[in-house]
């Protein structure tokens, strides 16, 4: 209880700083954490601090009702929360992933700890509310922290539903998602026109198109950014594995390719968090550890990107 109060007051304090940064359109700096704790970055809209690393659930958590695999996913979630993680991202498109998350949250009694991010994914907007309610029941949460229009499907009507829900206090934050660099023009337009809290897009050391327009716009508009596909669904790690890590790896704070890739993403000042997915406890720990000090500065980020491009 005491530690809860401590966490709250610390959150509020960091939140205030974050809101200040948002108000002045400065890139939000990651909050300095006590040694070993993972870094957070303030959500521009509210100043609420979010850990820099979240957890995706595409494919990895789609395990049906297989008891052995459900237990493995729960173990991943346990390590995630134990390591200070909060945001878990899912979608009604991801098969049984929502139910897997619900199973884990119930087993770990961790509903309070989670920042629950889900999506609406229907081309029949009339069904949006029912779909969201079904998703909520799978998760077993009282309400979602974030609801996003998945891949801009029926974007106008679905966004309208989500904004009305936010107005009514049925969801805290609202966003849109895209991936693989698709439809950035449409994303940009919505970011300009709609009062979004979050945009989710693909950003990593080789997929950097978002740096051109969307990340600066997110900062300008006070919109949080969730980076999906940090490892290109592992293809990027497979591509780099077996290639030499740079001699100056220690400067980045990374210990392997996965952390090298993550640190590049997390050190972009306009990225609120990245959401790597994994089936392995060891990997979730490794990913969370990438959100610890040090994070590369702008010069080192350039060097990292050049190094990977030259491989």
């Amino acid at each position: 209880m005491d530690s809860d109060r401590h966490r709250l007051s610390r959150r509020r304090l960091l939140g205030g700083l974050g809101a200040l940064a948002a108000a002045s359109a400065l890139p939000p700096l990651p909050a300095r954490a006590a040694t070993g704790e993972i870094l957070t970055r303030a959500l521009p809209a509210t100043g609420e601090p979010l850990p820099l690393v979240g957890l995706g659930s595409w494919i990895t958590f789609n395990v049906g009702d297989d008891p052995a695999l459900l237990a493995e996913c729960t173990a991943v979630m346990r390590a995630f929360f134990a390591g200070g993680g909060r945001m878990i991202d899912s979608s009604p498109m991801y098969g049984s992933s929502q139910a897997t998350i619900g199973h884990g949250l119930a087993e770990l009694d961790a509903v309070e700890q989670a920042y629950a991010a889900d999506k609406v994914w229907t081309s029949s907007p009339d069904e949006g509310s029912a779909q969201i309610e079904a998703s909520r029941q799978h998760w077993g949460v009282p309400r979602f922290d974030l609801l996003q229009v998945h891949n801009l499907v029926a974007r106008e009507a679905n966004l309208e539903t989500l904004l009305a829900m936010r107005e009514a206090g049925e969801v805290r934050h609202v966003g849109i998602t895209t991936s693989h660099g698709r439809r950035h023009d449409a994303v940009e337009q919505i970011m300009r026109e709609a009062p979004l809290d979050f945009v989710q897009l693909t950003y990593n050391i080789v997929d950097r198109e978002a740096e051109q327009r969307l990340l600066p716009l997110a900062r300008e508009r006070g919109i949080g950014v969730i980076a999906n596909r940090p490892f290109q669904q592992k293809r990027l790690i497979r591509r780099l594995e077996g290639k030499p890590l740079p001699d100056w790896l220690a400067e980045t704070g990374a210990q392997n390719w996965a952390q090298f890739i993550l640190k590049f993403i997390l050190s972009h000042p306009d990225v609120t968090c990245a959401i790597p997915a994994t089936t392995q406890v060891e990997h979730v720990r490794e990913n969370l550890a990438a959100a610890r000090e040090p994070l590369p500065d702008a010069a080192l980020r350039r060097r990292m990107a050049d190094y990977v491009a030259a491989l």
């Binding site: 494919i59 789609n62 395990v63 049906g64 297989d66 695999l69 660099g181 439809r183 089936t279």
Partner: peptide, 25 residues
């Protein structure tokens, strides 16, 4: 252009392990 950005693997929503375990269960 958007469709060209998809790879066949992008449509697969489960892993080999999960698929194989279906038959065991």
């Amino acid at each position: 252009k958007e469709w060209l950005s998809y790879r066949p693997g992008d449509f697969l929503m489960f892993s080999q392990r999960v698929y194989e375990r279906l038959f065991v269960l």
